[in-house]
Write a protein that binds this DNA or RNA. Structure first.
Lengths: 227, 227
DNA sequence: GTTAGAAAGTTGAGCTGTTACGCTTTTTTA
DNA sequence: TAAAAAAGCGTAACAGCTCAACTTTCTAAC
């Protein structure tokens, strides 16, 4: 695995040169003020070669490294300690990812600032991140014994992945993340059958919970909700 | 309001001509196979004029009409019947929006098919729709007596708006929407103080609920969650 | 009424990201 | 050593989009 021929080594080198040049130039003068021709020049390759290495375009130049994040998500669900709910596990994982943003590599700080500053890159990052939705949803569904395309699981996966994006810009992102996962955690344990021992009628896959509207016993006890 | 000078009338006419030509050409030959030059030609204006009318670019040509949707969202929260929770109100509203997609105008059907088919337009529509997040979150926060930028309210608003996008493509979107709002409904009433009479310690704005992790009494009663 | 000025429109050139095509050079493999 | 594969190059083009300078039209104040 560690030994690759001269060919692949050169290929990797070119790719790295491109990514390095891009990050440097972007950090210096801003994303929109650096053209792709200039990046190719700086890396001493042609424009066509650049696009051979990064077929997804200019934005992709910034995200050179993004492996095994999906694996971490699935592992967080699958290998969580006993008694921990799925939302809790995801909450913990994402909190860890966030704290990793503070203690940063030498250039890694520029990287984050660049993304946070440039709307196009924010959008791209979000898209890349949301790509894991399907896999994560499948992992959750498998864990809960539901069909892989269960809408509830897809919703939880989607919302959990959106959470970090959502809390960005809050005064205290940590607290904000807590609040978001408070919402998701309560909602999830409320709908999961094995966590609601009082209501016996629920099956593993609750299709259209009683009545078509979510008027179960939970809202009772408070007849008037608005003062 | 109804009487506008010749000037504004002509302006509106040009705009309409552009939008009509765009929708017609797009429907005939597909979004990607029609250039902006051709649209301008068909409407008998120059390309620059086209971009004066639609500064947001090619995608915006398709979305000529999108008023008072935000008002409907806020109204659904503010003027909901007594005893109905915020998620329930939003659920009902969005369910209604969905059923409106079935019985369609003459050309309105083409419009929807076009959007559903073209990824770029789907993304744009999502962005336009998500723009209401801030206003909706403020309305929810105001209703709940929380600060306007409360993260929980922002999360609920965001997730509710994402719901219709999320369930698109499900086998039965109605049921899928039910499941999503099941999650949100349970989560919301779980975190709202006025809906949890058992737990007395909660204040109106629960900052970082006890312990920093969502390990309240709700998960108790089932020591082992995974078989 | 005339005139100054804002707003709509035009023209045309030009910049950007991105791709297709055809070609040479390098590396691997048979 | 021949051939197949892959990386790279250069040109040329097309897409969406913008800029600058100029003409037309409408509005409004003098």
């Amino acid at each position: 695995m560690t030994e690759m021929g001269r060919r692949e080594r050169k290929k990797a080198a070119t790719r790295q040169a491109l990514a390095d040049a891009a990050l440097r130039l972007f950090s210096e003068r801003g994303y929109d003020d650096v053209g792709v021709r200039e990046i190719a020049d700086a890396a001493d390759v042609s424009v066509t070669t650049l696009f051979k290495h990064f077929p997804d375009g200019k934005e992709a130049l910034v995200f050179d490294q993004d492996a095994d994040r999906e694996a971490a998500l699935v592992a967080a669900v699958r290998e969580r300690p006993a008694g921990q709910s799925v939302p809790q596990a995801l909450h913990r994982l994402l909190l860890g990812e966030h704290s990793r943003r503070v203690h940063a590599d030498p250039r890694f700080d520029d990287f984050l600032r660049l993304i946070d500053t440039t709307p196009a890159l924010r959008e791209y990052a979000r898209r890349m991140w949301l790509r894991h939705e399907h896999t994560l949803a499948a992992a959750i569904a498998d864990d809960a014994g539901l069909p892989a395309d269960d809408p509830g699981c897809r919703a939880l996966a989607h919302f959990a992945l959106e959470a970090p994006v959502l809390v960005r810009g809050s005064r205290d992102p940590g607290i904000a993340l807590d609040r978001v996962f408070d919402l998701l955690g309560n909602g999830w344990t409320g709908t999961r059958a094995d966590a609601v021992p009082a209501t016996a009628g629920r099956t593993g896959a609750p299709g259209r919970s009683a009545g078509g509207e979510e008027e179960d016993g939970r809202t009772a006890g408070t007849t008037e909700q608005r003062p």
